[in-house]
Amino acid sequence: MTGPGRWAGAGRRLGDLLGALIEPSDRCALLGFPSYGNVGDSAIWLGARSLLDGLGAEVVYTADHHDFSAAALAERLPSGTILLTGGGNLGDLWPSHQRTREQVIGAFPGHRIIQLPQSVHFGDPAGLERARAVFDAHPDLILLLRDEPSLRAARRAFRAPSALAPDCAFALTGLPRLARPERRILWLRRGDHESAGPDEPNGAEAPAGVHRTDWTGQEGADARWVAAAQAVRQRIAAASAEVRGTASARAVAELADAQDRHARLQLQRGCGLLGSASAVVTDRLHGHLLSLLLGLPHVVVDDRHGKISGYWRTWGHDRHRAVARRAPDADRALRAADALLADPATPRPTRGR
């Protein structure tokens, strides 16, 4: 494993923000476990777990947005702090996540609730009004936003105190060491409604030496990884059922351990996929952030709602042009990736055998 190294300052900023809100040995819950294949959300989850561990907080309940139980949470945490995982689902882009968020905030007015760093997007005024009614009714809700456009949107829309914070991925304590690259360029492209739209490099087919994929499935997984993932999903299902039934400390600990194992498997697969190429082109925010952490030369193309460019500008990522560039479309991104690889001054990541 290799650590984030030069990015430790962002992790410290997150730790300082949460340390002002959570006391050592505080009991808390962490909600929003990503039970799917989006590697970026697994990186966020593991970063949050690392932050809470570093603060000495006791996590007494975890759940994804499907298996969340208000009764189990109330039993495990009669009082304390509820943390909602970070990401890009505050708003109406991913309705099921937002519904769970509003359910939790509405059901627990006596708990402090901290929304970990999120990007915000509401396209439907009715959805924003519904969220405002729920958020503004809570007496102790704190919102952390990971880019300045989201911070401004949150301050316009909600009464809750809000602050700017880096993405939780910067609190990761270690990343897998990269193997030798198998291809020249990886084009990691969103296949969902956050994509900016049809934008294939050089038409329908990727050029020679460019592998086009996404990481939401099992791309990059070998048979051993698949077997491990199947086993841990079975553990999660069994532990989730037990938590819903008994909410015992033992069942909660087993569930959290299995969830962390699932997230580590996804992160391992995602970093291996990124590192399978000498350079990366991506329209995924965590394709960019993990490439930064890994030291991989890469070029980013914006998503439909400007999430990547908002984060890039907020945290001054122009200063990382030695390893990271922006481009307006896939063709120019591929040319920029070629230029990075051709430049002898471009830093190269440390790789294993």
Rank of each mutant, 00 (worst) to 15 (best):
P201E: 15
A57H: 01
Q268E: 14
L175R: 07
G191F: 01
R189A: 09
I113E: 04
I142N: 04
A29L: 06
G287S: 03
A231R: 15
F33N: 02
F122N: 14
D302P: 01
E102D: 08
N38I: 03
L141T: 08
A63C: 04
A20K: 07
A345T: 15
A165H: 06
Q118H: 05
F170R: 10
D303A: 08
Q115G: 02
V210I: 14
P176V: 08
G220W: 12
S69G: 07
D92S: 09
A322R: 14
L340Y: 05
I114Y: 10
V299N: 06
I22G: 08
L172H: 01
V280F: 06
R353C: 04
R190D: 01
R27D: 04
E129N: 05
G316I: 06
L73F: 00
A71F: 10
M1W: 08
A339S: 03
E182P: 01
L151I: 02
L290E: 02
V210Y: 12
H97I: 01
A228N: 14
H138A: 05
V210M: 14
V243E: 07
I142T: 12
A154K: 06
R13L: 10
G203M: 06
R76A: 08
G80V: 08
S150K: 12
C28H: 08
P139V: 15
T85V: 12
G123F: 02
P109Y: 05
